[in-house]
Each structure stands twice: as structure tokens, then as C-alpha cells.
Write a protein that binds this DNA or RNA. Sequence first.
DNA 1: GACTAATTTTGACAAGGTGTAAGAGATGAC
DNA 2: GTCATCTCTTACACCTTGTCAAAATTAGTC
Lengths: 197, 197
Amino acid sequence: MTGPQDRNRRADAQRSRTSILEAAVHVLNADPEASVGAIATAAAVTRQTVYAHFPSRERLLVAVLDHLTEETVAAMDAADLDTGPAVDALLRLLEAGSRTAGRYPVLFQKLGSLPVHPHADQRRHVPIGDRLKRIIQRGQQAGEFDDQLSLDWLVAVTIKLGHAASEEAEAGRLSSVEATEALHVSLLRVFGAAAPR
Amino acid sequence: MTGPQDRNRRADAQRSRTSILEAAVHVLNADPEASVGAIATAAAVTRQTVYAHFPSRERLLVAVLDHLTEETVAAMDAADLDTGPAVDALLRLLEAGSRTAGRYPVLFQKLGSLPVHPHADQRRHVPIGDRLKRIIQRGQQAGEFDDQLSLDWLVAVTIKLGHAASEEAEAGRLSSVEATEALHVSLLRVFGAAAPR
DNA sequence: GACTAATTTTGACAAGGTGTAAGAGATGAC
DNA sequence: GTCATCTCTTACACCTTGTCAAAATTAGTC
């Protein structure tokens, strides 16, 4: 899940690195303004050790978000995306995404608007967008959706509506089921799907 | 536009305050991390004068965002929202919004996720949501839209899709016309409107 | 088990940002 | 013209980021 571990790294360095990342996830989720020192303490490590692994606070942030993205993508891939109706696969994917995202709401909100190079932001969203694209394409080819709207636009719409549903549920304006239902209906409509049951 | 000016304020102080706010808008839009000192300099004022008007950097940020929100709401109200088909009014409202928002893209991105009490964030979004709500309700009552989806959900969806269209256009993945068209079609579909021409 | 190289720790430093304070100076209101 | 208000200057304490160098520790290797 963490990719090929970096070459020639001593076991203790590896330990420190993951310690720091895990601590950062929790600390930053509790307080996105947390200092490097606070993260280091939570990781049972010195501030200088953090700087030995990450050149700056910002780069640590990026690493944390990449870490969470990997986790999310993994959860999505476990959700059986190539089976059954495309709408259902789509909802499963969104469900998997919002489930892991829901564990670190503060961080995932920060993910959207970070004083970070938007290039990195895009790199992070690509793998998720690809998976979405695959499903939508499958639905279009199966005649489940029409193809009046462009693929890229539908990907963007799906992500946004997924966020909207999560937020409405978290804000208590909709129950969890209501949110899923509203999302379901809205997606079907935007996709030009035959009205379901 | 700026509401009833605070009681018993010397002209002097009023000038400084607006100077600071305007400078803050521009400086922060160029660099959201800009220091209070930099903002003060741009306003031709001392750092301490800034603190005389705003108790902390964060509160200054809030004031800036409130200021922009007022501006946006005013632009929306100038857009003739109670005339013609509700869809068109909706598009006019979104157009007005994205036009003023487009002038300070960085700030409006920050508006979404600020380390600020979400309570303030909500207070900021309410006036815009209300205007949206009015139009959608009008469309539903006129039979232009169906009422299968809840009002609050439709408001959230409209805002999100408006953002999506702006972003796709800004990222160059869609032209300005294509984005408007995609937004139009998508909203009509979600709203359960009779398929247009 | 001892050697070696990588890693962490300790202690210290410069630079820059936030927020506070007091008094002198300037400016608007009346 | 007087007075209260506002701004400027100067100064301070505190925190955070990022960097450096040397001592102490630990992991991998023979």
C-alpha cells in the first residue's frame, strides 16, 4: 500500500517516517494549524527528526495528503467497481471514498484548498478521477447513461455531488440515508439514465 | 453597500478601515499567506493601526470575506431574479456570482476552507442560499421543476455545480460557453425540468 | 561481538510573524 | 481653539520555521 519502500533505508528511519506520518494525520486532523513541534512530540520524535524526513512543513502536509489519498484509492479499489450496474458501482465508489474521508474530515476539507502548488493537488485527484471515468464510460457504453455531457464534466459533477451529500449529512440537514438517496437520484438524472424503478 | 457606518466614528478612522480592507483584498488575493505587516504597508498604514481596527489577523480575514460576500450578494440582487423562467434567473444569479468571485479567485477558494469557526462560514452563505431558495421555489410552484428533491439539497447542488463549472472553465478543460451549457443542462436535469428545446 | 555507517538527539541560533503596550504626534469634531 | 479620537513610533515577549554542528544511539554486517 505504501509502494516500494525507499532504497537502502534503515529500519529505524522507516519506523520514524511512518510514525511521523501517522501522528501528523491525527494531530493535523484535530488542529490543522498544529506546529511541526507538536507533530514531532505526538510521534515521540524530535522536531529535527521531522526535518530529516520532510524538508518543510508544507512538504510534510503534502506527504500526509498523499498518504490519505492512497488509503482512499485502496478502499475504492476494494469496492468491486466492474460489476453490476454502473450507477451502483458509482455509489459504492463514493461510499468507499466518503467512508475513509469521513475519518479525517478536517484534513479532507483542507485537501481542497491548500496553499500548495495546484499541480500536486491535481496529481492527487487523478487516480480517483480515473476510476470514476472508467465506471461512467462503462455506463455510457452499456446504454445505461446517455452521452450528451462530456466525460470530464460528469466526473467533476460526480465528485462535487458526492461532497455535497457528505456535507449535508455531516451538517445534519439530511440523514445518512436521505443523503444517499438524494445523491442517487441526482446522479441518475444528470447522467440521463432511464428513470429507475 | 457597507451598511450603517459604525456610530461615532471619526472620518479618519473610517477611511483607514476601508483602506485596510481594500488593501487586504488585493494583497491576500495575490498571496493568502501575506502578513499583517504587508497588508498594512499596502494600505499605507502601520501594522498597529490594523490591530486598532481588527483584533487579530483571523478577524481581519473574516471581515474581508464578509466584505466580498456583501459585494457578491449585491451583484446578485442586481440580476433581476424574479423575472422570466426560474432556470434563467438561476443562471443569471450564478453568472453574477462567478463574475465577482472570479475577480478574487484565491480568496474565494479560501472562503471554502478557512481555519475559521464554521459558524461564521454559515452566516456568510445564508444570504446567497436564501436567494437561490427563492428562485428554486418559484420554479417548483410554476411547475417548471418537480419537487422530488428537497429544497436544501437543490440549493447545495446548485452551488456545487456552479463551482464545478467555474473550475472547469478556469482550468481550461471547458470553454466558457461549454461550461455554461453543461451547467445549464445539468441543472435542468437535476431539477426534473421538462427537457428544453 | 565488534565495527561502521546511518539515524536520532541535544543544544543553539537567525529570521520572521503575531499580539501587546505606552507615549508622542496628528487630525477631525464641536 | 480645544478636546477627544486616531495614528505613529518604539519597544517588547512569545512562538514558529528552518538550519547547523557535534554527541549519542542504533541498525546492519563481517
